[in-house]
């Protein structure tokens, strides 16, 4: 049985201007001990997806359909109260900006203890000892002293470590990290990613890493899902995505990927244009207004929504270009260009 499976998940928000289709038919599977990277520009629906898995849209304005299967349980139809008891224990989340994601008035230790004590009936003393162990585990020096510090007394990297300690305190089986390194500077980013890789091995959790930066997931992920306008547009192993990507949007992401062997500001090729409105999604392929290959599909890019189809061995692509054309463009036009820059 698959540990986590999303089937045609849709999360839509009614608004004054119309229905915001933040997630629009998303499906994927994830096994224990494996890492899935979800990549896409900001506004593509990544955070809404992760909050949806945790059940945090329940009771709000969101219209949710589809299925989320976690360890044999379906969560979309489950009661809000039941999903709450799974949160923190069975599935946990690490957020982007640890300064705003931690409560400014409570000590780091108190916040970790709180997470632990909701799901474990233990004394404050035991919980405190556990919190210190967790802080030690994520590499915070002098954890028995730092446990009484407030978030603002930590550096950015230390805060994110504390946030990770909090998320892992109940030994969750599914861990979702939503842009865990975006708020950090480059050297700290690498440390945090190393830490997450080590911890995942130790905890054997299923890990979802969400980012707008393909570089972040390059080394960590087993599989990668590329998202655009609430939909998966390409899905495959990390090798599929980096060695033989087939979707024009993925090519764009690869071109705009900051690389360590390159000056940060130099030669980033951002994808032209901006992410589409999720209320009036462009007709046909949502990417067509920004796609330089849209005129090679005989008009279908603007009229028909492409299906997410298998290219080869579980590698899925949502594009009207034929597989041969995609492969030829990648080999002859894109890859040489990326290597040259």
């Amino acid at each position: 049985m698959t540990f986590l499976e999303l089937k045609d998940l849709r999360i839509h928000f009614p608004s004054d201007d119309g229905l915001v289709k933040s997630v629009d038919g998303l499906s994927f599977r994830l096994e224990r001990g494996k890492t899935l990277g979800i990549v896409g520009e900001s506004g593509s629906g990544k955070s809404v997806t992760s909050l949806g898995i945790l059940g945090l849209h329940k009771g709000g304005r969101a219209k949710i359909s589809g299925e989320i299967w976690l360890d044999g349980e379906e969560l979309v139809s489950a009661s809000a109260e039941h999903v709450r008891t799974l949160r923190g224990k069975k599935m946990a989340m690490i957020f982007q900006d640890p300064l705003s994601a931690m409560h400014p008035f409570y000590t780091v230790g108190a916040q970790i203890m709180e997470a632990y004590r909701i799901h474990h009936d233990v004394s404050k003393k035991v919980a405190r000892k556990h919190a210190i162990e967790m802080l030690d585990r994520v590499g915070i020096p002098q954890p028995d002293r730092r446990v009484d510090s407030h978030p603002h007394e930590f550096s950015g990297g230390m805060r994110q470590r504390a946030m990770i300690a909090m998320a892992l305190s109940c030994d969750p089986e599914l861990l979702i990290a939503d842009e865990p390194t975006t708020a950090l500077d480059v050297t700290v980013q690498a440390q945090i990613l190393d830490l997450m890789r080590d911890l995942q091995r130790d905890f054997n959790a299923a890990l979802i890493i969400i980012t707008h930066d393909l570089g972040v997931v390059a080394e960590l992920s087993d599989d990668i899902l590329v998202m655009y306008a609430g939909k998966a547009i390409e899905y495959g192993t990390a090798e599929d995505i980096f060695e033989r990507p087939e979707h024009p949007y993925t090519w764009g992401l690869l071109g705009s990927m900051p690389r360590l062997d390159r000056e940060r500001t130099e030669r980033l090729l951002p994808i032209k244009g901006s992410p589409p409105s999720l209320i009036n999604v462009p007709s046909g392929c949502a990417f067509h207004p920004r796609c330089v290959y849209a005129d090679r599909t005989g008009g279908r890019s603007t009229s028909d929504v492409p299906e997410l189809l298998e290219s080869e061995g579980g590698h899925l692509v949502r594009c009207h270009l034929s597989r041969d054309v995609r492969r030829a463009v990648w080999e002859n036009e894109i890859k040489p260009n990326l290597e040259a820059s």
């Binding site: 709450r84 949160r87 224990k89 997470a115």
Partner: peptide
């Protein structure tokens, strides 16, 4: 605020 979302994510009532 973000920390409210965190509190909910912990599974607090």
């Amino acid at each position: 605020e973000d920390y409210i979302r965190t509190a909910r994510a912990k599974g607090l009532p």
